[in-house]
Design a protein around this nucleic acid. Structure first.
Length: 730
DNA sequence: GACCTGCTGCGGCCTG
């Protein structure tokens, strides 16, 4: 290998030996190209490569080579590598793999998360060394609880590794991670090279800017050019019956989808992504019924975030075990790179939530050499009846699914949203940093977190306003000399372990059957004893509800209904809506559609033209006026807010904005007037919106600051005005 | 009509 590989020659002899012992005949593309960049450590690096392409090794082989050389020189104290991962389960998977490599080099590996053994954590505090695998929340806890040890632990840090970068970018948790890494660097008093790993990045510039805020252009991107494997793709169409289904009976479309899943997937390992926990329960139940009727063992298992850890681990274990075929019906819980072995195929019921998510889901299949990745997408559309509206006739679900597949084929993914101010997480970081430093002045905090830190989009006046809000709510109090310390409410928040997470979780009821916890259920309306329930893919009856202990007791039953999970909607990207619009105007028929889906595509296009969508975007629909902007949800939301400020009764219905008290002519006139005038200030527009409390600590923010946060998170005024100009021709 | 993630210290009990 040495002759062909430049990277190999750069590795430490002990690393070379480790590779030799593995019997590798070559290094992967990303491993080859990342080695020198990482070893010199001059630049931060993003390694973008498909799942199972050796990303972890691409980062760790050169990093461990550097550590081994340092060790040869007898240099080094403290943790050398900080490896941050979004999931405890991922840390556990990686821990075993990394121990193998590190063990060969006499490097110590520690894992630190909520379920990790306490002995390892004590050892990190006592004699910090080697590689530390940790979650953002545990790193937060470490900084808050052991401020006096931070310099000793991280003073000699050589590298930071961020796994699954895409799962952090643009989120509150991502803002927390940025702040934590920045605070670690501040403690070490130098820049520490960052290496990030991801399989689905559509926008390298955005990801780079996320990894190194304000200096994204200096981040090196190693995007693997290894060809992805073959993909076998099918979109299957199903007709929803027009009449409402009889409650206890399976609707015809769901029954047909379940029949096909059962016939196609039985006896093999598969993942079925059903988009919601309720749908997971419905399909797990329908497939189990089919297995029972056929006298087959239960091999269709539910997996989602409300199921107990033990239940989920059982499913994961059965997936890993290649001897017994299992199909997991899941939400996004099995989307990330959890090691569940490899599956024969992936199914997606309904349009996927995002193109990046679809790519990630597809990556779970086709990991065996020579086997293609298999993806089946099931889409149900309503039966066409007389008196259809311009909205109904479009078969929007199918068009969204196909548009997303086309974007996937073109390697387009949603860019991380870098516009947000993340003020809720800023509040958390202000409190945390104040404790870590034993008090801080407003100027020090602004400098640490905003001016030089990741919250650089928060200007000085906004930061000052946030601090005033924190003072008003007693999260902070100011000493006579100007030093800020946690106030009464701040101490209360810091005292509870829930402080370490940047996100909020609801109070749930625990579901218990025969003393065994099945999972938890967020309950909005009271659940009464006697209620039938489907949960964990099985049928139950509620025996008792203990609202003090928040426990619901269940017993096995013959009947059942899926529970209602509350939830808020996601955001469809602008490019997806544009791709849908192109698809309606095109005549191309993708080869991966089955006969029904092909008919539905033709029907959708016929509806598009018959109702005049090709030439107009504003229609009368019964007593209402409907507007089709063909834009992403953020622009749709902005348009809806703008129209509402002009006294219109506005609603949103998928692709359309509905207006209750205005004729098409009046709406066209208003749009013409708006497009000709100046765009409003985003903050002023946000002031007209009612419910703006969104994230964990938003409730401490004053109206004025909340407006700024809402404008940054939910409004796109320039995009909306460009759309209004376009709509004047409609 | 989405989804997901994570967190400590300590008291009490059991076992070797």
């Amino acid at each position: 290998m040495a002759e062909q590989s430049q990277a190999y020659t750069l590795y430490h002899p002990a690393v070379q030996r480790w590779i030799y012992q593995r019997g590798w005949d070559r290094l992967r593309d990303a491993q080859e190209r990342a080695a020198e960049l990482i070893i010199t450590g001059e630049r931060d690096v993003i390694i973008a490569s498909a799942t199972a392409n050796g990303k972890t090794e691409a980062a760790l082989l050169p990093i461990c080579s550097v550590l081994a050389h340092k060790q040869d020189l007898g240099v080094g104290a403290g943790v050398a590598v900080l490896y941050v991962s979004p999931l405890k389960a991922l840390i556990n998977d990686q821990y075993d793999r990394i121990c193998d490599l590190a063990g060969a080099l006499d490097l110590v590996v520690h894992r630190w998360h909520g379920d990790a053994p306490a002995a390892g954590k004590a050892r990190v505090l006592r004699t910090p060394a080697g590689l530390l695998l940790i979650t953002p929340e545990s790193l937060e806890a470490l900084l808050v609880r052991h401020p006096d040890r931070i310099r000793r632990i991280f003073g000699g840090l050589r590298y930071v590794v961020v796994d699954e970068l895409h799962s952090f970018a643009g989120t509150e948790r991502g803002a927390q991670l940025q702040a934590l890494l920045h605070r670690v660097e501040a403690a070490a008093a130098r820049r520490i090279p960052r290496v990030a790993l991801s399989a689905t990045l559509g926008d390298y510039a955005g990801a780079a800017e996320f990894l190194r805020p304000r200096h994204g252009s200096q981040v090196a991107v190693v995007a693997s050019t290894e060809p992805g494997g073959e993909i076998r793709l099918q979109v299957r169409g199903y007709l929803q019956p027009a009449a409402p289904a009889v409650p206890e009976k399976e609707p015809a479309d769901r029954a047909a989808i379940a029949d096909h899943l059962f016939q196609t997937l039985r006896g093999t390992d598969n993942l079925v992504f059903a988009n919601s926990r309720a749908a997971v329960e419905v399909y797990a139940d329908m497939l189990t019924q089919r297995a029972v009727r056929s006298g087959l063992p239960a091999t269709f298992l539910a997996h989602h975030g409300s199921l107990a850890k033990e239940v989920r681990e059982h499913v994961e274990q059965r997936l890993k075990d290649s001897a017994t075929p299992v199909t997991a019906i899941c939400t996004s819980t099995l989307e990330l790179g959890l090691d569940v072995g490899t599956v024969d195929s992936v199914a997606q019921i309904g349009a996927p939530p995002s193109v990046a998510g679809l790519r990630q889901r597809l990556g779970r299949s086709g990991r065996r050499p020579g086997r293609p990745a298999v993806l089946r997408v099931y889409v149900a559309e309503p039966e066409l009846t007389a008196g259809l509206s311009p909205t109904d006739a479009l078969r929007a679900e199918l068009f969204q699914a196909v548009a997303m597949i086309e974007l996937l084929i073109a390697s387009w993914y949603e860019a991380p949203d870098t516009a947000g101010l993340h003020l809720s997480t800023l509040i958390q970081q202000v409190l945390s940093a104040t404790v870590q430093h034993g008090g801080a002045t407003a100027a020090q905090l602004f400098d640490l977190l905003c001016a030089r830190g990741p919250f650089h989009r928060v200007d000085r006046p906004t930061f000052a306003a946030v601090l005033r809000d924190l003072g008003r709510h007693e999260l902070l109090e100011q000493q006579p000399g100007g030093l800020l310390l946690p106030g009464r409410e701040g101490e209360r928040l810091l005292a509870h372990y829930s402080f370490y997470a940047s996100f909020r979780t609801s109070m749930d009821y625990r579901l218990v059957a025969d003393g065994y916890t099945l999972g938890s259920l967020p309950v909005d309306r009271p659940i009464l004893p006697g209620t039938f329930l489907i949960f964990g893919g099985a049928r139950w009856r509620v025996i008792s509800v203990d609202s003090a202990q928040r426990v619901i007791e269940l017993t096995a039953a013959e009947a059942g209904r899926p529970p209602v999970f509350p939830g808020t909607g996601g955001e469809v990207a602008d490019e997806v809506r544009r791709a849908m619009h192109r698809l309606y105007r095109s005549t191309a028929v993708p080869r991966y559609l089955d006969a029904t889906a092909r008919t539905m595509l033709a029907e959708g296009r016929a509806g598009f033209h018959a109702y005049g969508h090709a030439t107009s975007r504003i229609f009368a629909q019964q007593a209402e006026t409907v507007l089709f902007p063909w834009r992403g949800d953020r622009i749709m939301n902005t348009l809806a807010v703008v129209l509402a400020t002009h006294g219109l009764t506005v609603g949103q219905d998928g692709l359309a904005i509905t207006v209750g008290n205005c004729s098409p002519t009046q709406l066209r006139e208003l749009i013409r007037k708006l497009a000709a005038g100046p765009a409003p200030e985003p903050d002023a527009l946000a002031a007209t919106v009612r419910a703006k409390v969104h994230d964990k600590y938003d409730r401490y923010l004053s109206e004025e600051v909340l407006n700024r946060a809402y404008a940054a998170r939910a409004l796109d005024v320039p995009g909306a005005w460009a759309t209004l100009v376009e709509l004047t021709g409609a």
